[in-house]
């Protein structure tokens, strides 16, 4: 999909990665998770490297997670806060990005409300670009931490059955997770009312269901997406009440999941909409683990892209 880009230097889409790359990231994540558990969780792997956060859209956990990952690798970090920057004085995206690069940086982590912005940024500059969420397109590091978390619990995912439930159409997490889970051999079913699905699923390796109750007993992972509260106003669903009744995971539905089936959510959650409060507390609900693993996954991604790139593994010993 991103033929013009040197996919080995950037992480713009899960489709940039071969299955072997995903395996390597997961393996490396394991090593970095060990670093995170140390009393002084810091290795000098990226000392002297500078990473910039360019977040045009609000984010709490993704930015903090990247920040923690970079710090544990001893990278220098700079936060380009759009609210207080020249962007508010009318500076164009391209000027902003080129000015940041001129300061001598090694990687730029981009979040933007419009799909494709990280791809454009990668066209304009030489530094590595990491997509931290672009509009309704992709959120690759979220998908990688989802995979890592699921593998930790379930082992090999090939043949596993995953339901992704809720607002698929507007979800960058869904697009990345479909690519990531299917790359690992899992089968994905999208469960949503028609207005919350993209118009066309041509080329998507997925099944579709409009009936959550029908799929609950057959899945290994129930992945719930955040339901944006304004969707009812835009006629995507009649009301949040009706969405909850048809697609929300309450205790009764959670009880019908197979033993050991995982409940996942990228956060932030709307308790009482797509997920009920008591479901959050179940032992197989791994939402907190997802957040915890996010740091080590992002360490692995930063390390690979800023180290020697995805193509060689010579520097991986530095992780230990």
């Amino acid at each position: 999909m991103n033929s013009r880009h040197n996919a080995r230097r950037h992480l713009l889409s899960i489709s940039d990665l071969e299955t072997a790359d995903i395996e390597r990231i997961c393996d490396l994540t394991e090593s970095f998770a060990e670093v995170s558990r140390r009393r002084i969780p810091r290795v000098p792997a990226l000392r002297g490297r500078t990473v910039v956060w360019l977040f045009y859209e609000d984010s709490t956990r993704t930015r903090l997670s990247f920040e923690a990952a970079a710090k544990q690798l001893s990278a220098d970090t700079v936060n380009f806060s759009v609210g207080s920057s020249s962007v508010n004085k009318g500076e164009s995206l391209r000027d902003t990005v080129e000015a940041i690069e001129a300061m001598g940086i090694d990687a730029i982590v981009v979040r933007h409300s419009c799909a494709g912005v990280p791809h454009r940024v990668a066209d304009w500059i030489d530094a590595s670009v990491i997509n931290a969420g672009d509009g309704c397109h992709e959120h690759p590091t979220q998908a990688l931490l989802d995979l890592y978390t699921a593998r930790n619990r379930l082992g090999d995912l090939s043949g596993a059955s995953v339901a992704i439930v809720g607002d698929i159409a507007h979800s960058r997490v869904a697009r990345s997770d479909v690519l990531a889970f299917t790359a690992m051999g899992a089968e994905v079913t999208l469960v949503a009312p028609r207005p919350l699905l993209p118009l066309s699923l041509e080329g998507w390796p997925v099944k579709v269901s409009h009936n959550l109750d029908e799929v609950l007993g057959e899945i290994d992972i129930c992945y719930l997406l955040r339901m944006q509260l304004e969707r009812a106003a835009s006629l995507d669903v009649p009301s949040l009440r009706e969405f909850r009744a048809e697609y929300g995971l309450d205790s009764a539905r959670a009880n019908r999941l197979r033993d050991g089936a995982l409940i996942m959510h990228p956060g932030p959650m709307n308790r009482g909409v797509e997920i009920d409060g008591d479901v959050v507390e179940r032992p197989n609900t791994v939402i907190t683990e997802q957040v915890a693993n996010g740091v080590a996954v992002r360490m692995a991604v930063l390390f690979l892209l800023l180290g020697s790139g995805l193509d060689t593994s010579e520097n991986e010993s530095m992780a230990a």
């Binding site: 992709e138 118009l199 998507w204």
Partner: peptide
């Protein structure tokens, strides 16, 4: 255009 590509790219479509 709203279709296969807009759905994949995550861009808003015009049918």
């Amino acid at each position: 255009h709203e279709g296969e590509w807009s759905s994949r790219l995550g861009l808003g479509g015009q049918p």
